[in-house]
């Protein structure tokens, strides 16, 4: 079970100087919850998730006081979305990314993909350029394979016993 068997090569990317508004647009259009941020040479430098986008929009004073959010007036979300729409991706993207090599084992991917805000793990070639990505979906498929494999092994074992 290696990264190259499960990675998706259709990776949705965005540039560090693009805006929050463009990220929202792209995520909605591509029906995805995460984007890999790449620099001009196609090297991954961060990731963006819908979680981060929402966090950037919700005002600070409500984050610490969820109780008050229920008394919020209509139009507050729109007001703060408007304020945040020009925020640059590089200013709020998740920078502490973990990149994978196609030959890495899936256990490495599985461990990192659930940690912190790392929703997506970029896979890079020898030059460090983006060639694919592992998402939670990829790991889920690997998990499915692993479980059916184990089941088959079990069946086989029983048959041999008989």
């Amino acid at each position: 079970m290696q990264v190259k068997d499960y990675m998706t090569t259709w990776v949705n990317t965005i540039g560090p100087d693009n805006t929050l508004e463009e990220a929202v647009e792209k995520m909605s259009e591509k029906k995805t919850n995460s984007l890999v941020v790449v620099d001009k040479s196609k090297k991954p430098i961060g990731v963006i998730s819908s979680h981060l986008l929402i966090k950037e929009i919700v005002p600070e004073y409500l984050k610490g006081s969820e109780i008050m959010a229920q008394f919020g007036v209509k139009g507050t979300l729109a007001k703060y979305a408007k304020k945040a729409k020009h925020h640059k991706i590089k200013d709020f993207m998740y920078k502490d990314i973990h990149v994978l090599d196609p030959d890495d084992a899936m256990i490495e991917a599985a461990t990192y993909v659930v940690e912190g805000a790392r929703r997506v793990l970029p896979v890079v070639d020898k030059e460090g350029k983006l060639i694919g990505a592992i998402t939670r979906t990829s790991v889920k498929i690997a998990l499915h394979d692993a479980l059916s494999e184990a089941e088959e092994m079990e069946k086989k074992g029983k048959q041999e016993e008989i």
Binding site: Y61, L62, G64, S65, M68, A69, F71, G72, V73
Partner: peptide, 14 residues
């Protein structure tokens, strides 16, 4: 103030 600021902001929004 950590308690009062969110309340104040929401009241002012309203």
């Amino acid at each position: 103030v950590l308690l009062l600021v969110p309340i104040t902001m929401v009241i002012c929004d309203n």
